[in-house]
């Protein structure tokens, strides 16, 4: 019964290919095949949000996406939020606000924030807290993440 599929998808703007089992998790493909290890596994059940990526522009938990459903899609990971290796606008706001402690939930938190800023121009504290509720953090109490996202929303240019 074992068989693999040829998976082709765009990751952080680059077309990538992998030979994988059709039920393999997008998370494992990103980490093991493409070595994009910024995306983390915290629970494997879509609860903690550490594995979040943007799939065709929307946030998903990559531990719950089977390879076969990622065919032909566009994926953005935390590595793809940087601009030429330097922090993008959102990452810079996180840095200023000291919004990372152990750093393990941070990639998921950044992806959730990026997703929010796509949907909402200038999110306030309530919208931000709602948008981050799918990413569990055990270090911070969330205050600095919320501040960072509100700051990023308020200061971004014409994007």
């Amino acid at each position: 019964m074992a068989r693999t599929i040829e998976l082709e998808l765009t990751v952080n703007g680059t077309l990538r290919r992998a030979e994988v089992h059709p039920a393999a998790r997008l998370l494992d493909i990103l980490r093991d095949e493409f070595r994009l290890v910024g995306t983390k596994e915290g629970c494997g059940e879509g609860e903690c949000g550490a594995c979040a990526v943007l799939l065709d522009g929307k946030i998903v938990n990559s531990c719950l996406v089977p390879a076969i459903q990622a065919r032909g899609s566009e994926v953005v990971t935390v590595e793809g939020l940087a601009v030429e290796g330097q922090p993008g606008h959102l990452q810079a706001a996180f840095e200023t606000a000291n919004a990372a402690q152990c750093g393990f939930c941070t990639p998921g938190m950044l992806v959730a924030a990026a997703d929010l800023l796509h949907r909402c121009d200038r999110p306030g504290e309530t919208e931000t807290r709602d948008a981050l509720a799918g990413t569990l953090c055990r270090c911070t109490g969330y205050v600095k993440f919320v501040d960072a996202v509100v700051m990023a929303g308020g200061t971004r240019g014409g994007k």
């Binding site: 935390v78 996180f94 000291n98 750093g103």
Partner: peptide, 12 residues
């Protein structure tokens, strides 16, 4: 700011 903060934000 945290020393390793930027690297963490870049997923490195």
């Amino acid at each position: 700011t945290r020393r390793e903060g930027r690297a963490k934000l870049l997923g490195q």
